[in-house]
Structure formats: C-alpha cells, structure tokens
C-alpha cells in the first residue's frame, strides 16, 4: 500500500512506495503487450486531466493509462476554459469535482500547485508536472527504464545533462534515484545549474566528457527554449558544441552508456540524431514504460 493518497512529488514518497510502483508497473507492462490491452480496475472511477500548460506525451500517456484501466475521462486544457476568464485554480477544480470526479491528474505552471490542491480537495491528485518543481511520473519511468537494463540501481552512476535550472524532471529524478541508492551528478553550463544543488547531495560537473566517463547512464534534458527569458548561454550552436552529446564523443569513451531523454528532443542541440536513434538509446522504451508506470500510479492511488 502506498504511504500517500496523492502523488505530488517524489520527495514525499518512500523507497518502499517506489518499489511497489515498479512491481505493479511490471505487471501492467505485461498487460499492455496483450492482444487486449485493457483491464477493468478503474471502471467505476472518473479521472480529470487538467492541463494548465502544454503537453503532448505526458497527456497522451496519462490518457492511455486511464483508458487501459477502463476509467472514464474528462479532459481539460486551460486555453479552452474559464481560466482565461479569471477563475481561480481552486474554483476550477471544485467545479470539476462537483461533477463527481474521483481523481485529478494535473499539470500547472506554478510550483506547488498540486500540493496546494491536495490539501484542499478530497480526490486523489497526481502531479503531471508543476512548473520547475517536480514531475514524479517521469522520474519513476526513467528509473524503471534504467532498472530494466541495469537491475538494482544502488551504487549505479547517473548523470543528468542540460538545463537543470528549469527542469522539474531533474529534481524528481534526483530524489528518485537517490532514494534507490544511485549516485547522481548533474552536468551543464554554470548558468543552468541551480546554485544550491550541492545541498541535495548531487555532484556537479561542467565538462561533458568527464561526466560521460563517470556515468553508467546519461539522462539528457531538453534545453527549454520557452524558459530562456534571459540568455543563459550565447547561442544554441555554442551550447551544442560544448554540451551537446554526439556519437563521436560517445565512441571515444571506450565504454557503453545508456542514453535517455524525456523528450521532446531538440535534435542537433543537446543530442544528435545518431545518438538519439542508436541502440543504446532508451528513449522509446521510456515512452512505453510511461504508460505502465502511470497505470501503476493510478491503480495504487485508487486503492487508497
């Protein structure tokens, strides 16, 4: 049984919770590879997907997970709603809950929006990304994918590359991997590394080659072009030259590294196409595992 009624972040769940989610996701992975990929577990539940921020793969992945569990679904996006008329988050959500919704999957630009709601409403909340804070299901599916290749992650070395400053994926990954006993480093330009990240027990590296030589897995994050309100580096070309990961660099290491990317990829910026599409890339596997992990999270929270 999970120790929480809501999944607002990885920070406030336990290692036992993570292992339970993994164990359940393994079974759901088998389910989604069957000829009929559907189970009736949530047939009496309604899930609202509230996306106050753009999303493609996370929204589709959650929606597929909900459908595979036979839940009824209400989809909501901020641009086509009363939010644009000035309605508050709490009012919006309470109105949706008044229509007898049991579970809320929410993405919101404000960090802490899910935790705020979890204290106010009865339905189970799943955080699908809150600003630059956390994206727990992404971290779970990343760790689950690594675990499929490396086994137990205790003692394994994982480096997160790129825009750490704006990344909710990075923070959730750090919490998740550390709870599983892995060693974590981050690598990127100093302007994109949060100043106090050392306080999380994470190593910092600014040299991509050294970071790659150290790690077993490279989790490469997207440069969030929409959040570059000030110039964190001179140009994309320069970023790509100093911090981009290409095949020649990987080949020169003399060891094999698993390549991950939460998507969407800026091909040719943080990662080249030949790396993204190579046999060491887990990118599409991450997407497949995303559905299984989200099914597990929804299933376990529904049983609380």
């Amino acid at each position: 049984m999970l120790s929480t009624r809501h999944l607002t972040g990885i920070k406030n769940i336990t290692e036992a919770d993570i292992q339970l989610i993994f164990q359940t996701a393994e079974e759901f992975k088998e389910v989604i590879n069957r000829p009929i990929k559907k189970v009736p577990s949530l047939r009496d539940m309604t899930v609202a997907n509230l996306f106050f921020e753009n999303s493609t793969r996370t929204r589709v992945s959650f929606e597929l997970a909900e459908r595979r569990l036979s839940a009824d679904i209400v989809n909501f996006s901020a641009s086509a709603s009363s939010v644009s008329k000035g309605e508050t988050l709490l009012d919006t959500v309470n109105n949706i809950l008044a229509m007898k919704v049991d579970m809320v999957v929410m993405r919101h630009p404000a960090p802490g929006a899910c935790a705020f709601l979890a204290n106010k409403i009865k339905a189970n909340i799943v955080n699908a990304g809150d600003g630059t804070h956390e994206h727990p299901t992404q971290a779970l599916l990343d760790a689950f994918s690594m675990r499929e290749h490396l086994g137990d992650l205790a003692g394994k070395k994982i480096c997160i590359f790129g825009d750490i400053l704006h990344s909710r994926v990075a923070l959730s990954n750090i919490f998740c991997l550390q709870k599983l006993g892995a060693h974590v480093k981050v690598c990127g330009p100093p302007t994109l590394i949060p100043k106090h990240i050392g306080g999380l027990g994470v190593g910092v590296e600014h040299d991509v080659r050294k970071a790659l030589e150290w790690c077993d897995v490279a989790n490469i994050l997207r440069i969030q072009l929409e959040r570059q309100d000030i110039r964190y580096f001179p140009s994309l070309r320069e970023y790509s030259q100093y911090f981009g990961i290409n095949k020649a660099l990987l080949d020169s290491l003399g060891k094999q590294i698993l390549i991950m990317h939460p998507g969407p990829i800026n091909r040719g910026v943080e990662i080249t196409s030949d790396v993204a599409d190579s046999e060491h890339s887990l990118i599409l596997q991450q997407v497949e595992n995303g559905v299984a992990i989200r099914m597990a999270v929804l299933y376990l929270l529904a049983n609380q």
């Binding site: 049984m1 339970l20 164990q23 359940t24 393994e26 079974e27 759901f28 088998e30 389910v31 069957r34 000829p35 189970v39 009736p40 577990s41 009496d44 539940m45 569990l69 299933y299 529904a302 049983n303």
Partner: peptide, 26 residues
C-alpha cells in the same frame, strides 16, 4: 494468469498486490 486487475473487490478495503502473469500463448 494473475487476476488482480480483474478482481471485483478492488477499492473495497482489501489490499491487492499483483503477481506475475506468464502467458506465452493465446
């Protein structure tokens, strides 16, 4: 065949944990 996800007592107070399904055939 694991039947956990098909049980009719889900969300009725009982903790259900899934076992492995090994079905290599139709």
């Amino acid at each position: 065949l694991d039947i956990t996800f098909y049980r009719d007592d889900f969300r009725r107070g009982k903790q259900l944990s899934a076992s492995t399904t090994e079905m290599n055939m139709l």
